Computed example of a mutant assay.
Amino acid sequence: MALKTDSLQLTHEILALVSEIDEFKGAWRALGTLAPERLSALRRVATIESIGSSTRIEGSKLTDTEVERLLANLEIKSFDSRDEQEVAGYAQVMETIFAHFAAIDITENHITQLHRDLLAFSDKDERHRGAYKTLANHVSAFDPDGKEIGVIFETATPFDTRGRMQELIHWTRSALNEQSLHPLLVVAIFTVVFLEIHPFQDGNGRLSRVLTTLLLMRCGYAYVPYSSLESVIETSKEGYYLALRQTQRTIRSAKPNSQPWVVYFLRALQQQKRRLEKKIEREHLVLGTLPELSLQIIEAVKERGRITIGEIVSLTAANRNTVKKHLATLVGANHLTQHGTGKGTWYGPKSPRGINHGKS
């Protein structure tokens, strides 16, 4: 593709940001043992923030409270305003991503389907949803009266769009499969080039943020649904657009400069994970709450499906009475389920409905 990624300078700041984000990615293993209802609550708050922020970035006026109220009644499938239609579409696509990200590879077909679903409730977009643009959609500046006063950025022509999208998708898949570039940098470059192409008549900004979440989750950043990246972008919108323009102006040149956007993107991811850390601290669910032995026991259950006290003692070399105490705590907190009593006792994954079997 035309974008030359070998021109990206891996500065100390970029390497430090990547390292910090990846460290948290690894630490999420401990948080994955939290009670399901707490994880579910964190995700619901983050989803509301993401939907509200992403649609407001594009001009919606709905507050997070109004978004939450609307999400509680999504089954009505009928909405009074364009803002509500956009929120409903974004919510539907986010749930699809969260539930099926492992099966949604980055392909033209999946991207156009996600665009179609994103605009599923938007009456204004009925003719062009799920299809590449047929008219120019350059990014323009407008005066307070809504009159266009100039083109800020020229996007790909309708004629060039399909070819450029195929080029971008091929590069992204190859870079991830071959691991020729760190996945965070691949996601950053995909996003900025996607927005430079602006492949659809409308909905490009919202879809770019959906695809960012999809790519991050496919790359193993499992914590992403629990903290809103869109909210971070909304609070730094001026920097977001500035970084985009600085990089987009050079993408097709002999000396492309990915630096401004990559740094902004990684800083936004850093802020996203730091917000999640603070939320966890506020709920007294600090990283590393579970002792190392408890984590070892949980990991062993995940790998084996079931385990006995004797097997844990052999595996960890821990004292039998200590193992019993950790198991009692894990069962009581619904991290594990006890089956049977006496010598026949074994332990399995947590009960999906919080019901423990047997006696502690």
Rank of each mutant, 00 (worst) to 15 (best):
E49D: 11
A120Y: 05
F265V: 03
N321V: 09
I233W: 00
A156T: 05
A2P: 10
W28V: 09
I309D: 10
V193G: 01
K278N: 04
G220L: 09
L10T: 00
G344D: 07
S50G: 05
T5M: 06
I104W: 03
L62W: 03
G146E: 08
L327C: 00
S122N: 12
L118K: 03
F24G: 02
E66F: 00
D22I: 13
K147H: 14
A16T: 15
N137P: 07
A188M: 07
T172S: 07
E84I: 07
Y221S: 06
Q248K: 03
T5Y: 12
L215E: 09
K25Q: 06
P36C: 03
P36E: 05
E37C: 04
Q113V: 14
F194Q: 08
H339Y: 03
L118N: 05
Q201R: 15
E178G: 02
D80C: 01
H198I: 12
H326V: 07
G305H: 01
T289W: 02
G344M: 10
M94K: 10
G26V: 08
L295R: 10
I111M: 11
T345P: 02
I169F: 02
A131V: 14
I111H: 00
T134E: 11
F121I: 09
W346N: 13
R29M: 04
L215Y: 02
E84H: 14
F98P: 00
S208R: 12
N73M: 02
V139N: 03
E84G: 08
P291L: 06
N257M: 08
Y240W: 06
Q248Y: 01
F101G: 01
K325C: 02
L229V: 12
K237T: 13
I106L: 15
I312G: 03
F159S: 13
V286C: 05
S60F: 04
G342S: 12
R38Y: 06
V186W: 01
S228Y: 09
L211Q: 13
Y240N: 01
L330H: 02
T337I: 05
R173Q: 13
D83Q: 06
L269F: 03
R353G: 04
E167K: 08
T212S: 14
S314D: 14
A102W: 01
E84N: 04
F159V: 10
A328Y: 10
V224S: 01
M217A: 07
L74N: 10
T213P: 00
T235A: 11
R116F: 12
D145Q: 14
H284S: 12
L185E: 04
I106T: 11
L242W: 09
Q85M: 15
F153T: 12
R44G: 01
A72C: 04
K77Y: 14
L207D: 07
T289E: 13
